[in-house]
Design a protein around this nucleic acid. Structure first.
Length: 819
DNA sequence: TAGATCCTAATTTTT
DNA sequence: TTAGGATCTA
């Protein structure tokens, strides 16, 4: 019992309540930085200390990283042995365990393999081709997305075809045969013995729905279910959870000890099928549920939390909660105004340098977040210019490399010879004289035999499809090589088999033969992959050894006692793992670096100093085509996530013009900047500063509103040289538009009239002769004429009510049009 | 079959 | 702009 108080110790009262309320449905609404993970892990530890059996606890996360971290923390509280027995992992990895058990019932081989998204897209593409559809109309990526959405919503191909609404939409989108692609894709996957990510959830549902016995059996194995990041669950996950808990239809005697943790304000994956409604409706779905709110933010300063609150308040449909910071007030948020994205980058970098000096901060304390990956380019450039170390978090950089994928395809094909995507990928890599014509014929044959490519090679009657003997020999040689490996999958250690495949395929040799820099890099990457297989085998063996040692009757485990860790195990592990770089170890120690990443990938992380770049309309919020209210709210949540990553300071930057898709683009500052209560911003956006960009008539060549704005007035950030001393061209030629013309200008004897406070000028390209205007110093006047080739050179002759006639350069003059 | 060249489409992506 | 894919040519 002493341990129990140890678990509760150091938790605040709300956290304690959330941890110790074990019976019945529980919703923990955990604001950013409120100690969510701590509560979840403590809760599980508490549960175990109270006598709960670890193997009867299912805990689901979205990432492997989250699962591993939590396991470690739980192990620290209750010991390795118990923690290890927990049924804890990602939705996908946990469900795969069940699916393997019951695969035959679902029409899959027990050894089914997993398609990642790119496999999935190319399989879809193959289906489109097979149906003779135009891939300009049926864009593989989009179709795959639609199929994915359908599966996430548990819409099978049949259901899809029967759904008038969906069919109507497709008709309108001019792709009425989408459902055929969907159906064919499913057939092919099944034929290949393959599930894509969505299938794992879909099939789990099918398993639970169509096989009540299995459903009961699985559900009865658990007394408690816990779910992390519940706000990001999709419909399929939602239904699975419903089926595993008490349920009148399928599971009337089941328990309803389901505890979900999440923050509706941080739901940012709707575009991928996440349903924020799941968390919003939890109370309704699980009557009698208890709700705990964790509203104390331990991470950020008050200013940051307050600013974030004021922002997210603009969203409707939220779970009411009032987050507050317990830390110090902190600095206000700071806006960085730049003219171009490269200047923006330079300003960010100088501010980082300044901060590092002022606060003795380290590189790793800084993160620069952005909406789109392409924004990293300018930032990298600026960082390199100033010689600052940085690292970019970007997707599966390693596993996205062609050579790594190739090698992986060999592994996959050995584990599952029917995996057609892998087959196609490597059949001629390295060159084996199996060209396009051969493959076309083989594919036609496989189609007509209704079998996989691999099996088709051994089928009778290939010549009918125009396959020459020589081609068939080549194919057979390839298949035999694969088959030899396939025979050994269950017998040989993964690392040995992987190495053999690399050698016997000739893939590694081909890369090694290439002495170019790229070639070297390729073979190094393949080596690294092979190495990672070895590391995996080693780790897993140690794990198993420890597990065996945990048994009281076992005192020693020799190497021979350990089971062989095989390639299929490695594959499953790897295909369900995402960003966790193979080189993560290097990163851990040698990583005093500035972090660059998208806001999405920053979720769950924290940094003392956070910069968010590209705070512009059309970029953040991203907008694009149609930005509906729901999408806008998601963007706002995304921005909320960005801001709440910061512990100490937040800097938000925007550029007036930015190179996008090869073109200069001008966008107004993001509306989100306006939505933050200005009392939390050091230099807030002035009222109409952001307007007049979009509807301004295009003038000259694409550069809109280059001068004439008051952006520079208060831009001086602490200790940095705001406009980039070493800055780009623009700095030189740009006039100090917003500065009072104190030093040089107006040598007239008369003192200048005071300028109007908070004057908001219109863009210089708006002015036309005849308009009545107000000038920030000279007051009302009328434009008599404007001349000059471009807006930047235009001069206006204006007669002012009080000051008479003057000629002003439009780009300097701060004026607004009256009425 | 490889290499050159042309064309086109560009958010976010826990699995 | 640029990356990736498709198509064309030796």
């Amino acid at each position: 019992m002493g341990n129990i108080s140890a678990i509760l110790e150091g938790l605040n009262s709300e956290q304690q309540d959330a941890v110790s309320c074990l019976d019945g449905p529980v919703l923990i609404v955990a604001g950013a930085g409120s100690g969510k993970t701590r509560v979840l892990t403590s809760r599980i530890a508490y549960l175990l200390e109270k006598g709960g059996a670890p193997e009867r606890v299912m805990a689901l996360t979205f990432t492997k990283k989250a699962a591993t971290e939590m396991k470690e923390r739980i192990a620290a509280m209750v010991g390795e042995r118990k923690a290890r027995r927990l049924y804890m992992g990602t939705f996908h990895s946990i469900f795969i365990r069940f699916l393997r058990d019951y695969a035959p019932d679902l029409g899959y081989p027990t050894s089914f393999t997993i398609y990642d998204q790119s496999d999935s897209v190319s399989a879809v593409k193959a289906c489109i081709k097979e149906l003779n559809l135009d891939d300009k109309v049926y864009k593989p990526k989009e179709i795959q997305g639609r199929i994915s959405m359908a599966k996430n919503n548990l819409v099978t191909p049949d259901a899809y075809r029967r759904d008038a609404d969906l069919m109507m939409k497709d008709l309108h989108a001019k792709r009425p045969r989408l459902h055929e692609i969907y159906a064919l894709y499913c057939t092919k996957c099944k034929q290949s013995g393959v599930m894509d990510f969505d299938d794992i959830l879909l099939n789990m549902n099918i398993l639970l729905a169509r096989f009540p016995d299995h459903c009961r059996e699985i559900a009865s194995r658990f007394d408690h279910i816990l779910v992390d990041e519940y706000q990001d669950t999709n419909f399929a996950q939602y239904i699975i959870l419903r089926r595993l808990t008490r349920n009148e239809k399928t599971n009337p005697q089941g328990h309803d000890n389901i505890c979900v943790v999440g923050d509706d304000s941080q739901s940012i994956y709707a575009f991928r099928g996440a349903k924020i409604e799941n968390i919003l409706n939890f109370k309704r779905d699980y009557p009698g549920c208890k709700v705990f709110r964790l509203e104390r933010n331990y991470r950020s300063t008050q200013n940051i939390v307050n600013a974030a609150n004021s922002l997210i308040a603009k969203n409707e449909g939220r779970i009411p909660k009032k987050c507050y910071a317990v830390g110090e007030e902190g600095e206000k948020l700071h806006l960085i105004r730049a003219y171009t994205e490269s200047e923006e980058a330079l300003l960010i970098v100088s501010r980082i340098i300044a901060r590092m000096q002022e606060e003795r901060a380290q590189y790793q304390d800084f993160a620069i977040l952005y909406r789109t990956n392409s924004q990293s380019r300018a930032l990298e450039e600026a960082l390199r210019k100033r010689n600052l170390p940085y690292r970019i978090y970007s997707g599966n950089a390693f596993f996205d490399r062609a050579e790594v994928k190739d090698m992986m395809a060999y592994f996959k094909l050995a584990v599952n010879v029917n995996d057609d995507e892998s087959f196609k990928r490597i059949v001629n890599k390295p060159a084996r004289g199996i060209g396009g014509t051969t493959m076309m014929a083989l594919e036609a044959a496989a189609r007509s035999f209704e079998t996989s490519l691999f099996k088709a090679v051994y089928h009778e009657g290939l010549d009918a499809f125009g396959l020459k003997n020589a081609a068939v020999e080549h194919l057979k040689a390839f298949c035999e090589m694969i088959d030899k490996a396939a025979q050994r999958v269950k017998a040989d250690p993964a690392d040995a088999l992987a190495r053999r495949l690399a050698d016997q395929s000739g893939l590694l040799a081909a890369f090694k033969a290439d002495t170019s820099i790229e070639g070297q890099a390729r073979s190094a990457n393949v080596e690294e992959l092979l190495n990672s297989v070895a590391v995996f085998v080693e780790d897993r063996r140690e794990e198993i050894r420890e597990e065996m040692l945990a048994d009281e009757n076992v005192t020693e485990v020799s190497d021979e006692d350990l089971p062989v860790v095989t390639l299929d195990v490695f594959l499953e592990d790897i295909s369900l793992l995402s960003n966790v770089d193979l080189s993560e170890d290097d990163e851990k120690d040698a990583s005093n670096k500035i972090t660059l990443m998208t806001v999405h990938s920053a979720k769950g992380l924290e940094f003392p100093y956070v910069f968010v770049a590209g705070m512009e309309e059309n970029l953040f919020p991203s907008g694009g085509m149609m930005l509906g209210p729901a999408e806008l709210e998601e963007e706002r949540r995304l921005f909320y996530v960005a801001v709440t990553r910061a512990k100490k300071t937040v800097d938000l930057s925007y550029a007036q013009t930015r190179m996008r898709n090869g073109k200069h683009e001008s966008n107004a500052p993001s509306r989100f900047l306006r939505e933050i209560d200005p009392q939390y911003v050091a230099n807030p956006l002035r009222r109409r500063e952001e307007e007049d960009e979009d509807d301004a008539p295009a003038f000259g060549g694409g550069f809109k509103g280059f001068g004439g704005y008051g952006y520079r007035t208060k831009a001086k950030p602490v200790g940095s040289s705001p406009w980039g001393a070493s800055g780009p061209v623009q700095v030189e030629r740009r006039p100090a538009a917003g500065m009072p013309a104190r030093p040089m200008a107006a040598p007239s004897a008369r003192p200048l009239p005071p300028k109007e406070e908070n004057f908001v000028p219109d863009s210089p390209d708006k002015f036309r002769a005849g308009q009545t205007i107000t000038h920030d110093r000279f007051g009302r006047g009328k434009i008599l004429e404007i001349n000059g080739a471009t807006v930047l050179e235009s001069k206006a002759r204006i007669v002012f009510e009080k000051y008479g006639e003057k000629i002003l350069l439009l780009k300097y003059a701060k004026m607004r049009i009256e009425q």
